[in-house]
Design a protein around this nucleic acid. Sequence first.
DNA 1: CTAAAACCTGACGCTGACGTCAGAGGCAAG
DNA 2: CTTGCCTCTGACGTCAGCGTCAGGTTTTAG
Lengths: 128, 128
Amino acid sequence: MRIGELAAKAGVSVRALRYYEEQNLLASVRSPSGQRQYPDSAVDRVQWIQQLYAAGLPSRTLVELLPCTLTGEVTIELLGRLTAERDRIDARISDLVNTRDRLDGIIATVTTVGATGRHCSPGNSTAS
Amino acid sequence: MRIGELAAKAGVSVRALRYYEEQNLLASVRSPSGQRQYPDSAVDRVQWIQQLYAAGLPSRTLVELLPCTLTGEVTIELLGRLTAERDRIDARISDLVNTRDRLDGIIATVTTVGATGRHCSPGNSTAS
DNA sequence: CTAAAACCTGACGCTGACGTCAGAGGCAAG
DNA sequence: CTTGCCTCTGACGTCAGCGTCAGGTTTTAG
């Protein structure tokens, strides 16, 4: 498939795909005229890249870890990096849960509310 | 307290605090000579700001939501924004858990490893 | 009193993951 | 053959949350 189709299927922009190639995250075979050709498997790969980006991993890290997350072959250093990143994600999860719970607490104190634009505060459930 | 002390106590840079003020996230009283003065409560406030930043909320959103997360007073629209952000954080947590689990799966297939620099793959537990 | 440390206001620099525009070539349809 | 969409390679623009430097004032320690 060509780049436009891959972009559509993976839900990213064409620019993003060319950027991934620039970062050595995604390879392509070139047609005689220079157009990029991708196998079907590229869709999953791109989505996995997106997921790791969303987890906060920068492209440098992805360059190192992406191959082994797909082949399952890894050196012991890479395994260390892998578990380290996993732990960092774990930590971020904890932080987010913490923040969400705190927001929930705040929301709970002002749950009972009047009409649009009205003011409300903790003791304002059925306003006088 | 002055800005340097606040920075130290809150664990952020002086520059960050001035930036927060620029973004109307953190107010200060000025001494006659123009130096910023903060109350003790500013430490908690700054840490809360940091936590919300870490949760992915941009400063524009913080400007709207920060006051009511501290006073408990909120309009119904703000309550909507508040729960919306909570839900977005929830979604991010789900994504991260998903990613972490996938990484865990990958790590599990290569857990038993040999010496530094050695190669390993799923069936390589007690290498020959 | 003086030197160091802390503070001030601009204002430009940085990083990362792209967006976007320019200018040119490819490719199937009518 | 030309219309129109897709693709190509640069290369500069963007945005956010600060870092950092310049050049000057204020506060503090000795």
